[in-house]
Every structure is written in structure tokens, then in C-alpha cells.
Design a binder for these strands. Structure first.
Length: 701
DNA sequence: ACGCTGACTTAGAACATGGGGG
DNA sequence: CCCCCATGTTCTAAGTCAGCGT
């Protein structure tokens, strides 16, 4: 959002003492507001901390700049319900600024400006590791969850067979859920309709006038929903603001929680509203009603010495209250579709998430140290037979193609998707081309996203190699793996031989758990998914540092736009590797058309200008104009290229989950102090604060 | 050894926002 | 100024994998 405009370079920690950033980037003012809102808690000090605890707490505080004490007083007012009030501290993060933070934190004179909110972050990476093995916290206090409003019957009547039908509120509720999805793709799917009808007809009862779905007309309800939406849209700015503020106010107590002696943000304190289940792909349960969740369905977790979350629905109570300090969840319930667990966790920017995120990348870096050895082992194993051959062949695929492990799934309950271990014969096509053997993969992976990839040897012909490189559905075996690839193909041939049916498993002796057991032997803590993290991060690091002695280095460094493009191209390689995709916008074609027209128009203008130039007296001026226009055209054209290239590709998924943020931070610092906020948005900056602090320009993955 | 429960990460779509260009 | 689109945020589904109980 708003923050993107100030590009501030991140200081390279080494060279410049680093000026501000902290202060302007993290407005302390925010702190104040948040504190007051949440008010809820209480810092553990007040509760008779153990000696050890208090010590540690003290330390934390000190670091943060002792501001705690001064704010305590204010929380009180908002929170009647709690007996203890906590000083919700907002700590401003950076060292240098902490002192000032405290001072103005309270007074808060100014702040008329828009106010970019950057959440205060507890800088866990500056604390020494305090907790005992396995413990996630020593104090946890929060206000639980917030429920969606009860269903309010609107009384709009649907029709059946042309007749107006009255529904009970309960019936109306699910009819309305259906109406709400009338313009989605689900509405046309048989499974969706069938599942919905099953539940709807049950709710209608045996002798209801409505006998089938075909003759139901939900249009009146659809119209009603549209009208409601319009009404909402038509509100004035002020009204909208008011509503927003009211919402913020009610939600404020849930936004932050107290973890040990600091505040953290809750990631998802809103209980999921009832609705029709929207599974991805051909999900057998799409259209089923996802029921209302009651407090009685929810288990709460907090520390024993905390004030437990109070149930906000009168007459209700939590299912139970537990104190599991080896767990990071604040609450959970089971959904009514598959009985799956839904957890309430802290946000991505929290210390708990940050720490495990860092551990994830450290593990991937650990793999980097062992990967040569492990690959050697895999190479060996490719030549064996039976289970060992299967294990190593699968691992080769996981390592080289970055595919997922592939747990078994029950296709009566879930969509039929696969990963490595669950690949079936029908997903593989073996072939040959002028370079040698090929394997074509075509299957649905996680989220029913298509994975289509022709894996082959790199052509000698540079022209062809280039072509293949630009084709996202082709990948070349990486250098040094050619021989292994041939072996893998042979193995795949025997694993898919015609004694097997298309629906049989390729790796019939494998499952993810045995595979991971095998991996654990190769390196402690190693599992299949680590390869994805490792290969993604390694690829980014390699790609980014090609800039180091790139022949066109200076042209990439010419300005932010060109440098950003270089970064995005590297990011793109990773997205392709990991098969991260996104839906192409419905208006994509028309958008491209528009761009074409614009470009065409510019070309015409250019031609015109050139013609005029001949007869013009002020040639110099014309020349300038022409150059200008040419520049605009080329800009438009590259923009179009980018648009086409990224049409179905998501860069964000890898950024958020797979790429060690320190790679990016270091690269930015190293190459012209490139503004980090060009590549990381506000959320990522918050999420990766630890990395921003940690990586200097020499850091490498 | 294996199936199931539980906890946590990863994922794309839906939705909201707001800035730039006509 | 308005609208369109890009980008950011929220939502919740769908994976991975450990550990437990049988």
C-alpha cells in the first residue's frame, strides 16, 4: 500500500551507520494506537513471574528501551473485562530510536499525516535463546476469537417452478449461500449442485414443494444480494470510514496477544463464517455446507497464569481451555467438511513464525553443505533395484524438478492430486528427441494446479536451447546430471512398463514417510520439502549474482526499473521451477489488446513525427521528440512483454515461502543499495525484519 | 509398519485499496 | 475526477511431516 513510495535504500550495515530508517519506517505513532486498542493484556511481570522469567523479561525490556513503564497506565480504561491490564507495549524497534520512541510514544503530538502503519516487531533475533527445548513460550494471553454475526433472514423469496416459495430462516440461509455463488464456476458443476441439493433437500424436509434443484430459481435472492452490495458501495466516504472504525474498535482486543513479555499480532482471530465449501479442482465435497462454528467447538490455549479468553457469545462456553506451551496455536476447531483442524496462529510477522522461518532456511543452507554428497548417494542408488532404486529415482525428481513429496490422498474425500511418491503411470510419458530421452510430466499437483513439464537434455544448438529456455513447459537437465537423467529415464521406463496399468503408482514401493526416513539418514532433519526450499533459494542466489560479471551489468544497474527487472527475472526462474501459478485475469485479452492499440498509436505518431522532421527547421528539437517517443514505445513494449510473461505465473509465492530473504537483502545492499521496498512489500518487510537486520552485502545463501 | 491425529507451512482466489492515466 | 488495473491483504484450502497408538 501506501508505503511503497518512499524508496529508502537499506543501509548497508557495514558501510553506513545507517541513518534513519528506523524512525521513519516504523512510526512510533502506530504504537500508540495499537496499544490502546488492545489493552488487553497484562504483561507477565505482574503475575508473579518466576525468578528466571523475570530476569529474562527485564532484559528484553531493557533492550527495547524501557519504555514499558510509562505506558502502563493507559490501558486500563479500555478493558473492563480483564482484571489485569497490560501495558501493551509497543516497542519500537530499532535500537537507536528506541529512546525517542518512548518519549513521543506517549505524547504523540503530531500525526496528522497519513500514517503508514508498520507494526512494532519484537526483535527476537537479538535476544538470546531463552526457552527450554520444545517450549514455544512461557506466557501466553489473548482474547480468543471473534465470531461472524448470526444469520439475519432477509425474507426475500425464491421461486420454484414459477411459484413463490417461503423458506424458514434456516433454509433461507443456505439458499442464500447458493445464490451468492451463482456467478462462480462452481455454479455450473454437477458435483457442486449435487452436494448442495443433498443438504438443501434435507433441510427442506420430505414433503416440501421444492422437489429438485433444476427448477429452483434463486434469482430474487441473487438480486437482493446485488442490491445489498450496491447499497454498501453507495455509502459516502464518511459512512464507510465510520463502519471501518467501528469494526476496528470491536476487533481491537483480538488483534494483539501477549507472548512472554511483548505483544504479537494474531494472524486469524476471525472464526470462519458458514458457507458452501469451495474445494479446489474436482473436489468431491464442493457445495457441501460448511456449518456454523460455535464456542463449544473451540479449544483455547493460553498460559495457566494468564487471564483466559472470555467467550463473547452469551450463554456459550469454549469447548475447553488448555495450556500447551509446546504449541504455537492459540485456538483450534474442526471444520464440518472433513473434520480438519483449523488453527488460530500468530501472524507471519510474529516471533514464533519468524524463528521457524529462519530455521527453515538454515536447514536448507545445511542441505547446501551436504548436497554434493547426497547427490552422489542418489546417483549410486539410481543404479540399484527395487526399493532403493525407487527411492533414489524419486529423490532425483524431487531434487531436480522441485516437485513435492506426494502423500497419499483419499479421493473420496479430497481432489485427486499427486506429488512425487503418488505419481501414477498415466502422468508420465517417456519419449526421445534429437538430444536423447525425454520425460513428459502431466499431472495435477497441490491445489489442482497443472504441472506440465517436458524434461530433456539441453540442445547443442544454441538457438534451440534458447527457445527451450523461454518455454516454461520445458526444462533442461542441469549440467552434470545428463548421465543420471538417462538412468532415471531407464528406471522410469521399468517403473511404468506395460505390466502396469495407467492408474498404477509409478513408485509402488514408496511413500513419503519411508522416503523421509531415508532422507533423515542422509542428513539429520532432512525431508523432501527441504529440497524445494533449497533449490528455490539456491536458484535465486545463483541468478541474482550473475549480475556480478554480467556483460550488461551497467545497463541493468542503469536505474531502478532495469535493476528490478533483473531481480524479477531471477524470481521468475524460481516461480517456474516451483510451478507457482495464478489465474489469468478475465480481462487479460482485452488488456493486451488495449496495449497493442496504444503501441500502434505511438508508432503512428512516430512515423508522423519522422515525416515532419524532414521539413522542419528545428531539427534538433524534432530529434529530441523522436527519441522521446521511441523511449516511450520501448517502455510500453517491455511492459507488454512482462505482462505476457507473467500472465499465469505468481512470483509472490516463492518470495513469501521459498526464497531466503537474506539473499534479497544482501543483493540489494550489494548492488547499488537498491531500495528493498521495490522487491518486498510492507508485509514482507515486517515478516523478514530479522533477515534485513542480519544480512549484509556479503551474505550468501 | 502402518494408519491416524495433530500441528504447522504453503497456496491461489477473493476481496480491498489506492494511484496513475485518460 | 473517475475508472481501471496493479498490488496488497485476507481468507481458507491443501499440502508436509512428526509422533502416537495399535
Amino acid at each position: 500500500m501506501s508505503e511503497s513510495d518512499d524508496d529508502k535504500p537499506l543501509k548497508s550495515s557495514k558501510k553506513e551507520p545507517k541513518p534513519e530508517e528506523d524512525d521513519d519506517d516504523v512510526p512510533l505513532k502506530k504504537a500508540k494506537s495499537s496499544k490502546k486498542e488492545n489493552v488487553q493484556s497484562q504483561v507477565k511481570e505482574e503475575n508473579a513471574p518466576t525468578a528466571k522469567e523475570s530476569k529474562k523479561k527485564k532484559k528484553t525490556k531493557r533492550k527495547r528501551g524501557d519504555d514499558d513503564d510509562d505506558d502502563d497506565d493507559d490501558d486500563e480504561e479500555d478493558f473492563d473485562t480483564r482484571k489485569k491490564k497490560a501495558p501493551a507495549k509497543k516497542e519500537k524497534s530499532s535500537k537507536s530510536s528506541s529512546k525517542s520512541a518512548k518519549t513521543d510514544g506517549k505524547g504523540q503530538p503530531k500525526k496528522p499525516k497519513k500514517e503508514v502503519k508498520v507494526e512494532p516487531v519484537y526483535e527476537w533475533w537479538k535476544d538470546e535463546q531463552p526457552l527450554a527445548q520444545g517450549k514455544k513460550w512461557r506466557f501466553l494471553e489473548h482474547n480468543g476469537v471473534i465470531f461472524p454475526p448470526n444469520y439475519e433472514p432477509h425474507g426475500v423469496k425464491m421461486k420454484y417452478d414459477g411459484q413463490i416459495i417461503s423458506l424458514t430462516p434456516e433454509q433461507e440461509a443456505i439458499a442464500t449461500m447458493y445464490a451468492a455463488m451463482s456467478r462462480t464456476d462452481y455454479a455450473g458443476k454437477d458435483v457442486f449442485k449435487k452436494n448442495f441439493w443433498k443438504e438443501f433437500s434435507e433441510k427442506l424436509g420430505k414433503n416440501h414443494a421444492i422437489k429438485d434443484l433444476e427448477n429452483c430459481d434463486f434469482q430474487p435472492i441473487v438480486d437482493h444480494l446485488d442490491a445489498e452490495r450496491e447499497k454498501k458501495k453507495a455509502l459516502t466516504k464518511e459512512e464507510k470510514l465510520k463502519i471501518k472504525q467501528a469494526k476496528e474498535k470491536t476487533e481491537a482486543p483480538y488483534v494483539t496477544v501477549v507472548l512472554d513479555s511483548h505483544l504479537e499480532k494474531n494472524g486469524n482471530f476471525r472464526v470462519e463464517p458458514a458457507g458452501l465449501f469451495r474445494g479446489r479442482g474436482e473436489h468431491p465435497k464442493m457445495g457441501q455446507v460448511k456449518g456454523v462454528i460455535q464456542p463449544e467447538d473451540i479449544t483455547m490455549n493460553c498460559s495457566e497464569d494468564a487471564c483466559p479468553p472470555r467467550c463473547s457469545l452469551p450463554g456459550h462456553a469454549w469447548q475447553s481451555l488448555v495450556h500447551k506451551d509446546e504449541q504455537t496455536w492459540l485456538a483450534f476447531y474442526k471444520d464440518t467438511i472433513n473434520g480438519e483442524f483449523k488453527y488460530v496462529f500468530l501472524s507471519a510477522g510474529s516471533s514464533l513464525k519468524g524463528q521457524s522461518d529462519r530455521e527453515k532456511f538454515e536447514k536448507a543452507r545445511e542441505l547446501k553443505k551436504h548436497v554434493a554428497r547426497i547427490r552422489q548417494r542418489i546417483t549410486q542408488g539410481l543404479k540399484s533395484s527395487g526399493l532403493e532404486m525407487q527411492q533414489n529415482t524419486a529423490l532425483w525428481l524431487i531434487d531436480n524438478l522441485a516437485i513435492r513429496a506426494g502423500n497419499e490422498k483419499d479421493t473420496n474425500e479430497e481432489a485427486d492430486t499427486v506429488g512425487c511418491c503418488s505419481l501414477r503411470v498415466e502422468h508420465i510419458t517417456l519419449g526421445t528427441d534429437e538430444e536423447g530421452p525425454t520425460i513428459y510430466f502431466n499431472f495435477l499437483g497441490k491445489d489442482s494446479i497443472e504441472y506440465k513439464n517436458l524434461v530433456k537434455l539441453r540442445p547443442k544448438d544454441e538457438e534451440k536451447a534458447k527457445e527451450g529456455e523461454e518455454n516454461p513447459c520445458v526444462s533442461f537437465v542441469r549440467e552434470g546430471e545428463e548421465k543420471n537423467f538417462r538412468r532415471v529415464v531407464e528406471n522410469m521406463r521399468s517403473l511404468t512398463s506395460n505390466s502396469k496399468k495407467p492408474s498404477d503408482d509409478v513408485f509402488d514401493q514408496l511413500n513419503t514417510s519411508s522416503l523421509n526416513t531415508y532422507l533423515k539418514d542422509l542428513m539429520p532433519g532432512l525431508t523432501a520439502k527441504v529440497f524445494r526450499t533449497y533449490n528455490a533459494s539456491f536458484t535465486l542466489d545463483q541468478e541474482l549474482y550473475k549480475l556480478e560479471d554480467h556483460p550488461e551489468k551497467s545497463s541493468f544497474l542503469r536505474n531502478d526499473a532495469t535493476q528490478l527487472k533483473f531481480y524479477n527475472d531471477a524470481n521468475y526462474q524460481v516461480a517456474i521451477l516451483c510451478n507457482h501459478s495464478r489465474a489469468v485475469s478475465k480481462t487479460f485479452d482485452s488488456q493486451v489488446e488495449k496495449m497493442d492499440e496504444k503501441i500502434k498509436g505511438l508508432h503512428e505518431e512516430l512515423a508522423d513525427l519522422k515525416k515532419k522532421k524532414k521539413s522542419a527547421d528545428n531539427k534538433e528539437q524534432m530529434k529530441k521528440k523522436i527519441a522521446n517517443l521511441e523511449e516511450r514505445i520501448s517502455k510500453q513494449e517491455t511492459q507488454k512483454q512482462i505482462k505476457l510473461k507473467l500472465a499465469g505465473v505468481a512470483l509472490s509465492t516463492s518470495k513469501v515461502n521459498y526464497l531466503d530473504p537474506r539473499i534479497t537483502v544482501a543483493w540489494c545492499k550489494r548492488f547499488g543499495n537498491f531500495p528493498l521496498n521495490k522487491v518486498f512489500n510492507k508485509s514482507l518487510i515486517t515478516k523478514f525484519k530479522w533477515a534485513i537486520d542480519e544480512a549484509d552485502e556479503d551474505w550468501r545463501f
